[in-house]
Each structure stands twice: as structure tokens, then as C-alpha cells.
Simulated assay, not measured.
Amino acid sequence: MDYFAGLDISMDETHVCVVDREGVVVHQTKTASTAAAIAVELAKAPSCRRIVFETGRMAPILFHGLSQLGLPVVCVESRQAYQALKSLATHKTDRNDARGLAHLARTGFFKPVHVKSLSAHALRSLISARKKLVGQRVTLENQIRGLAVVFGIRLPRALTAAFIDQALKASEGIAGLSAAMRGLIAARTAVMTAVAAIDADMRRMARASAACSRLMTIPGVGQLTALAFVAAIDDPSRIRRSRDVGAYLGLVPRRYQSGEVDYVGSISKCGDRRVRTLLYEAANVMLTRYKGQLKLKDWAFAIAKRSTMRKARVALARRLAIIMHAMLRDGTEFVLA
């Protein structure tokens, strides 16, 4: 007889439930949220044909850890699992969720999701850290300008070293303002140093990656965009058709149809928001800063002529995603034409 397991994972504990083909619970317990501990508990039950758990913060490390132990684990989208679990139990508890996931594994009523490699997650963490630091730098600079303008000191958007010195000199003699300025400027300097260190690491990683080097030959695509795209795709072969990348990154129009109602709205904005933003910026750079002749530019400008420039940027971003995926999958080069 076939057996199926569901895992409801939290930071500290994981609830385990194993059911047979008829849905009868044969083993139910909880253990620590580590691959070794979960494998020990599953070994106490009959061998499972399929083990299902939801996406979450612990999903990558547990998925790869259990896979290395030879267990048939499947990760499912948490939003899809939520809709199914809501109809299976009146009370939402970890125990009930584990049993519900086991029933999902038994029925096969789920769509598995790709769990990115740990190296891809590490690269995404580096990009996220840089984004957070850049946001902190902007916040600090706005705070410096806000404090300075109260005392009649107007600082430009680009805070160069000369303007920082001007702000410090102007605040001298004002006890509260001087201390505040020095503290904020010291914090800004530390943040900028950290951003520069991350940029240096990203530059080395981009140069060492053949895939990133190929992607960076596309006008408008820099090291940050190339690294973010490679980390988001992870394994190009998992997406069979390159044109599906647009939907994966949320760059296709949202459609709603019900009876006589049928309309197409703005883009869905699903998937990785950061990669979508970077592709949009790359499209804007290609249209506004790249001076060479390019068929992609002509195609996007034709869209802008009959619609809007914003829609042209979105369309070009989607086309860039398709081209970049094909380059990763096939190992081909970008041809300027």
C-alpha cells in the first residue's frame, strides 16, 4: 500500500502526519525542524511515496536536506495549500494542517514549485542586503537635508563630500544640530562603505560567472540585473518555453473572465519584484541612453508610438526576460542587430 506524508513546518517544531491510500492516519507526531529529526520520525512510519510541505522561510534548507537523505519531498505554494486546507478542517492548528497536507499528497491536488538552490538563495540575500542598505542611505540623506533646511542650509540631492563639509561647518556652534549632523553623517558613511563592499563582491561574482558575462552584453543590463536574473531563474531548464518567463516574473497582463465579464488589466506583478524592477530599468536604459541601432529599440518605440512609453518599457522588459532566459538555456550570445 502507498503512504503519504504532510509536514507543517515552523521555526522550532514540525508536525508530521502520515496517511495511507484510504486517508487513514497511521503516524502523527511532532519533532524539531531539522532535516535529520524529520527523517528520523518518518523512518518510524511506513515508507512514503510522497512528502508534501508548504513554501516558507525554512523550505529551502529542509527541501535540500531531505532530498539529500533520499526522501521524495515536494514543495507546494502556500497560497494554494491554504485554500485546500481551509476546506478540510474547521479549526486551523498545526496538527490539522499537517494532516491536510498529507491528504494533498495523497490526492495529488497540488502544483509543485521549484525550490531554488542554496547558492541562488545566497545570491538573492546579497542583493536584498544591498537594496536595504541603499534604502537606509536614502533615509539618512533625507534626514540630513531635513535637519539642515530648518537652519537655512539647503543641500542638493547628491550629497558630495564638499556639501557634507558645508553642512558640518554650518551646524557648528549649535549643540543639538551639530551632534545630530555628525551622528547621521557617520551612519551614512558606514552604510556607503558597506554598499561599496557588496558592490565589489557582486562585481567579482559577475566576472566569474560565464552566464552573467553573456547577459551583460545586452545594452542596459548591468551586473546587478544579470546576477538577480540568474538567481531568480536558477535552473533555466525548468522553464520549458522562454516566453513563459514573462508570466513567471509578472510582466504579462492580468485577465479576469466570469460569464459575460472579460477584461484584461495591468500586469500581474507576480514573482520576484526586484527582478521585475531591474528589467524595467534595463529597458528604460536601452530606450533612453543606448545610442546604437537596435531592432529591439525600434520595436519598443513602435509600441510607444501607438500606445504609451510606459507600456513600451514593460513590453521591452518582458522581451528582455525572454531573450535572457533563452541565452541562459542555450548558452548563446546576444547579437547587436
Rank of each mutant, 00 (worst) to 15 (best):
F163R: 14
F163G: 00
L71T: 06
H64L: 05
A129C: 12
A89H: 13
A148F: 06
S128D: 15
A98P: 02
A84F: 14
P156G: 05
L88V: 02
G146W: 00
V150E: 15
T90M: 03
E77D: 15
L147Q: 11
S178I: 00
I174Q: 12
R79P: 00
A158I: 12
V138Q: 14
V150C: 08
A148G: 04
N96K: 09
V134H: 00
L140M: 11
L69P: 00
K116E: 08
Q143F: 01
K116F: 04
K111A: 10
P112E: 03
S87V: 14
A84I: 10
S125K: 10
A170K: 11
S117P: 05
Q80V: 10
A180P: 02
S78I: 11
A59M: 10
T93D: 04
S171T: 10
V74P: 05
K132V: 13
A170G: 15
H64G: 08
K111H: 08
L177T: 08
A180K: 05
Q68R: 15
P72E: 02
L62T: 06
T139W: 11
A84G: 00
A161L: 10
P72I: 03
G65R: 07
I144L: 09
G173N: 06
P60M: 02
H64Q: 03
E172V: 02
A175P: 06
M181D: 08
G108W: 03
L104D: 02
L71W: 03
N96F: 00
Q80G: 09
V138E: 13
S128G: 12
A180M: 11
S125W: 00
E141G: 11
L133Q: 11
H103D: 15
D97G: 02
G65N: 07
S117V: 01
F110W: 05
F109Q: 14
H114W: 15
E141R: 13
P112H: 09
S119R: 14
R106K: 07
Q136T: 12
G70L: 06
T90W: 00
G100T: 03
R130P: 04
V149Y: 09
L69G: 07
Q80S: 07
T160K: 12
A180D: 09
K92S: 01
I174F: 11
R106H: 00
K92M: 03
N142K: 10
A167K: 04
H103R: 09
G65E: 01
L159N: 08
Q143P: 05
S78V: 15
Q166R: 15
A98E: 04
V113L: 08
P112W: 07
T93H: 06
N96T: 02
